[in-house]
Design a protein around this nucleic acid. Sequence first.
DNA 1: TCCTTATATAAACAATTTATTATATAAAGG
DNA 2: CCTTTATATAATAAATTGTTTATATAAGGA
Lengths: 112, 112
Amino acid sequence: MKNLDTAFSALADPTRRAILARLALGEATVMELAKPFAMTQPAVSRHLKILDQAGLIVRRVDGTKRPCRLAPDGVAAIDQWLGMLRDTMARNYDRLDDVLAEMTATNPKDTP
Amino acid sequence: MKNLDTAFSALADPTRRAILARLALGEATVMELAKPFAMTQPAVSRHLKILDQAGLIVRRVDGTKRPCRLAPDGVAAIDQWLGMLRDTMARNYDRLDDVLAEMTATNPKDTP
DNA sequence: TCCTTATATAAACAATTTATTATATAAAGG
DNA sequence: CCTTTATATAATAAATTGTTTATATAAGGA
């Protein structure tokens, strides 16, 4: 699952999450994105490249501009992995409860 | 939002995601977690420390063992941020549609 | 065609991360 | 006690990341 790697890595950076949050409000060009962040344009371009490769944004051509917007599919992929985690967790919740019960019996200090 | 930083950074590593997926099936000790991954025990301990600090797992004491399990709250925090992103995106979907419509009119080649 | 605007790429470098080996700690069992 | 088992920490080397400055490309307008 290489793509998930790149997607989560992309989300790991606060600047990139801020860019995504901004893009959730609607399309924006590179310069528009660069302005609020105390950062040069090349740095933003690199972040956008990473987000693009991670499948989290898409870019189109409009003259010399390259407006970006969110790629809902990419966000969905992340969601899906987390959903898997949550579902598996829920599916094993009863067993987990057993473990917790046993733990409490074994070492009561663990659950103050 | 420092905590979210650490949480997403923690999720960015494939080994740590695998550990989380394993823990979704139920509690496991450090050695149990280390076994399937081609990696030394200290390396796994470090990953667990990172997951712990990110609030994604909790550890208890059982003799010399330190069994780990998922921290549902941590997973929920990540979910929440993605939910925010998705909601904002949805709230601006109509406007986005307008932009797409305008884009198509301006430069039909963008939507083959 | 020349200049400007918008963006991308390259080179260089500091800071961070990840893994390994070696060592420390701490509880259990004999 | 002494040894074994389970885990943590330290030192360190290797790899990755994020940033900057400088330069390249490409479209638009005078």
